[in-house]
Amino acid sequence: MELPVVIHRARLGAAEFRVVRPGRPLTRAVLVDHDRHLDVYLDREAARALAGLWMLAARSPRSLIHVPLRANRPPGGDVPDDSGSRLDLVLLHHSLQFAPSRWKQVRSRLGPGRPHTVSLPEAERDHGMTDADHEARHHRENRDLFHQHLHAETLFMTGSAKVFRGTAGHFLDVAREGPGHVPVHPNHPHFCTQFHGNDGTLGDAREIHVEYCDRWSS
């Protein structure tokens, strides 16, 4: 897939940070903090973009992938209570060792940036995981896990290239299946997927519910 992005650079003292944002705003996507879990609501275009950004995070260990979402309007229609806090999202490789406490300063120093187009492979769900793969995911020394931090109204998803690649398909599933599911299931127009605690991909991280929505506030 071809993913338009904007590349920014910000300097804090001797350190320079590379921040990548979507080239087009993901206006039909929101990330909501419901304390015990996180909810992502999105349409088809936003789901495909997030799949691409997840893949980009897997191959960009020196970059912060910033997805501005907290100013977006919530979806309309029959969705769960939107009383939680809306958040922005940052994806980053664990080797970057970026301290979220520095994010507010980095964010304030971002200029207009440089447009760029990234060529990425399509994300795929790992439906063929073997028993050995499943056991390895749940081994106590498994380092391919997501960890989350919350700072400056932003959720930081920190992980390895492997865990980003292995979970990007959550969003591609929503993009592929959500639009077709809703019209033919009028009594249950709910299509979702989930980063589940039993999947072996979450370390110090809450579960994430990802739901397709076709009705949005204007």
Rank of each mutant, 00 (worst) to 15 (best):
S95N: 09
D78W: 06
P75N: 06
S85K: 14
G111Q: 11
R114A: 11
H93P: 00
Q97K: 14
S101K: 13
L69C: 02
R114I: 12
D88W: 00
K104L: 07
P68H: 06
L87W: 01
V67W: 05
D88A: 05
G77V: 02
R73M: 07
L92E: 01
V79R: 12
D81Q: 12
R107E: 14
G76K: 14
P100D: 10
Q105L: 13
G76E: 13
W103S: 06
Q105K: 10
A99R: 14
F98R: 07
L96G: 05
P112M: 07
D78Y: 04
G113T: 10
H66Y: 15
R114V: 15
L69G: 00
P112Y: 01
V67H: 03
D88G: 05
Q97M: 08
A71F: 08
R73V: 03
L96V: 09
P115D: 14
R73P: 00
K104F: 03
N72K: 00
P100F: 11
V106Y: 01
R114K: 14
R102I: 01
H116I: 01
S95C: 04
N72A: 03
K104M: 04
R86P: 09
G113W: 12
G77L: 03
S95H: 11
P115Y: 06
V79L: 07
G113N: 10
G76I: 03
G84I: 06
D82P: 12
S108H: 09
V90H: 00
G111A: 12
S101L: 10
R107N: 05
S101W: 02
R109N: 07
R86Q: 15
P68A: 10
D78P: 04
G84S: 04
L89C: 07
S85H: 10
K104T: 04
A99S: 13
W103M: 07
V106L: 08
L87R: 01
S108A: 15
P100R: 06
S85C: 05
H66S: 13
P100S: 10
R70D: 01
L89M: 12
G111K: 08
G76L: 13
P68W: 03
G84C: 04
R114G: 02
R107D: 09
V79T: 09
P75G: 06
R102H: 14
L110H: 11
S95V: 12
H66C: 09
S85Q: 15
Q97V: 06
P115L: 08
D81E: 12
L91V: 11
V79Q: 07
W103K: 02
L91H: 04
V79Y: 05
S83M: 02
A71P: 00
W103E: 08
L96T: 10
S85E: 15
H93A: 15
D82M: 12
